[in-house]
């Protein structure tokens, strides 16, 4: 088992400047069919697609709010609720599946007392499935924010994940 940092973008905390939305709108407004790209920017800025952001963004992009909701709910990548500070992603690709991903998920669900797709009440941990992060040679793979836990045994997963806990600042 090994744990390493990757370049995967981590969800940034809130507290971004108020004009972030207009900047996103300005960037994409005049490009044909760019709603999904604009929503990627929103999710990168806020960590998810907050309702109030969607309401502000829609008129600025010139699309109905329903279009945004339609797209966000169709694609797995977009989230409608704020994830916890630590996002645990269990890779559910076929290689990981054969090498114990279901048991890994079970153990994490039991430890944190949440189902996949849920966040702990203290908002510290969020557990989710991911389709395949394309590192099948290192299966089974679990990521915690930008850190990757590779070739992990189900029995070790809880220790490996909790070791990556970072205390809240302040």
């Amino acid at each position: 088992m090994s744990t390493t940092e990757t370049k995967a973008p981590a969800a940034k905390p809130a507290g971004t400047p108020p004009d972030a939305i207009s900047l996103i709108a300005k960037r994409w407004k005049n490009k044909r069919g760019s709603l999904i790209m604009a929503l990627h920017d929103v999710q990168e800025t806020f960590g998810y697609v907050p309702r109030e952001v969607a309401l502000k963004l829609a008129p600025q992009l010139g699309v109905p709010v329903a279009r945004i909701y339609e797209v966000v709910t169709f694609y797995n990548y977009f989230k409608l609720e704020a994830p916890g500070r630590h996002v645990i992603s269990v890779c559910m690709g076929t290689a990981c599946y054969l090498k114990g991903a279901p048991e890994i998920k079970e153990r994490l669900m039991a430890h944190f007392g949440i189902k996949s797709g849920e966040t702990t009440p203290d908002k510290e941990w969020h557990l989710q499935d991911v389709r395949c992060i394309g590192c099948c040679g290192l299966a089974p793979v679990v990521t915690v924010n930008s850190k990757i836990i590779a070739k992990v045994k189900p029995a070790d997963i809880v220790t490996a994940v909790t070791a990556l806990y970072t205390p809240k600042e302040g």
Partner: peptide, 25 residues
Amino acid sequence: IRLGAGAFVCGEETALIASVEGKRG
């Protein structure tokens, strides 16, 4: 570059086109 957003069906050509146009795939 246009980014996908996690939908397997978007590998299908006409669904991919819908996605590039910013719609549900």
